[in-house]
């Protein structure tokens, strides 16, 4: 087999990049596989205010690029390839990884840090109008909607944060939420309610997103009264939770009812040499700093695993 890796990391978000720093710095041949874009969720986040060491906050993207540079400095390789299969070898022999484009690689230890993807609403018009007003990234697209009304869907931190951000451009921001209270942290809620451009529409869901070549309105339904109405807007930004990317782990490790992988405090799964870290694991705090901490923990344990089963680096 041509491509032999010591520690394969699947997913180049904060957990994967932190794992990459530790794995490569331990002098193990390290590859970080990314099926999409580097940085994971922080690539689409604006400023990060709660990562220790940055008292004034830090841009999410800049932080991701710095983590990448740090991992690469120690020799980790970023590979834009989609790993679709992980097969454990017999006891004491490496895992086999398969990629979407048909490659077969070997890895002595595997750390899955594939994170979570934003959910779709699943309503008519949504997929048809992606890029024409429907968006899952306000930091990317809000600037295209200057001085027009827009909708943000959701009630968690992401939705509230993006609603506040979007007021820089939009004339009016409607936060549409299916409950009558928000899940977002208090600090974010205070900013939201203090912003005169934002109107929260409670107990309401989107029924359809309307428009031919571009979004022109959304049909809203109040789930308490049953009343529906059309709200003219040019954009609908959707932040309704996430689903962990555990498809590569299905049948291999136990998952909780939400689809997160169950691990111990060393990020170990029942499969010897296979680790899962970051937002994809069960009972994670789902924060940038905890994801990075998970990645470091997994890489340290992976190094121990390889040392026990294969010996010291270079042996």
């Amino acid at each position: 087999m041509a491509d032999e890796i010591d520690i394969a990391i699947i997913g180049a978000g904060p957990a994967g990049l932190a794992a990459g720093v530790y794995a490569a710095r331990g002098d193990r041949k390290t590859a970080i596989f990314e099926r999409n874009i580097l940085g994971g969720q922080i690539a689409t986040t604006g400023d990060v205010e709660n990562y220790p060491g940055f008292p004034e906050g830090v841009n999410g993207l800049d932080l991701a690029l710095a983590m990448q540079a740090q991992a690469e400095r120690f020799g980790a390789e970023i590979r834009y390839e989609h790993v679709t299969g992980i097969t454990p070898g017999a006891e004491g022999s490496p895992f086999v990884l398969n990629t979407e484009d048909g490659q077969e690689l070997s890895a002595k230890a595997v750390i899955v840090t594939a994170g979570a993807d934003y959910n779709k609403l699943g309503v008519p018009g949504e997929l048809e109008l992606v890029g024409k007003g429907v968006s899952y990234c306000a930091t990317c697209d809000a600037a295209f909607f200057r001085n027009v009304p827009v909708i943000i869907v959701g009630g968690g931190d992401a939705a509230v944060d993006e609603a506040i951000f979007t007021t820089r451009y939009a004339s009016k921001v409607y936060l549409v939420h299916r409950r009558e209270e928000l899940r977002a942290t208090r600090l974010l809620q205070d900013c939201l309610f203090a912003n005169e451009k934002i109107e929260v529409i409670w107990n309401t869901v989107i029924e359809t997103i309307n428009g031919d070549d571009a979004v022109t309105s959304a049909t809203l339904k109040n789930i308490v009264t049953g009343e529906t109405r059309d709200l003219p807007v040019e954009a609908v930004f959707i932040f309704v939770g996430q689903t962990p990317n555990t498809s590569v782990l299905r049948g291999l490790v136990p998952l909780d009812p939400g689809g997160h992988a169950i691990v111990n405090l060393w990020m170990e799964t029942p499969v010897s040499g296979l680790f899962v870290a970051g937002d994809i694991r069960a009972e994670a705090a789902r924060q940038l700093v905890s994801a990075a901490g998970d990645g470091a923990t997994a890489a340290i344990r992976a190094e121990h695993y390889i040392a026990d089963h294969y010996g010291a680096p270079g042996s």
């Binding site: 690539a43 690029l65 834009y80 930091t139």
Partner: peptide
């Protein structure tokens, strides 16, 4: 692309490849 768009900067290395 635009300078303020994070994912755009992340797509750039893939486009270069």
């Amino acid at each position: 692309w635009a300078p303020w768009c994070g994912p755009c900067r992340m797509v750039a290395p893939i486009v270069e490849e």
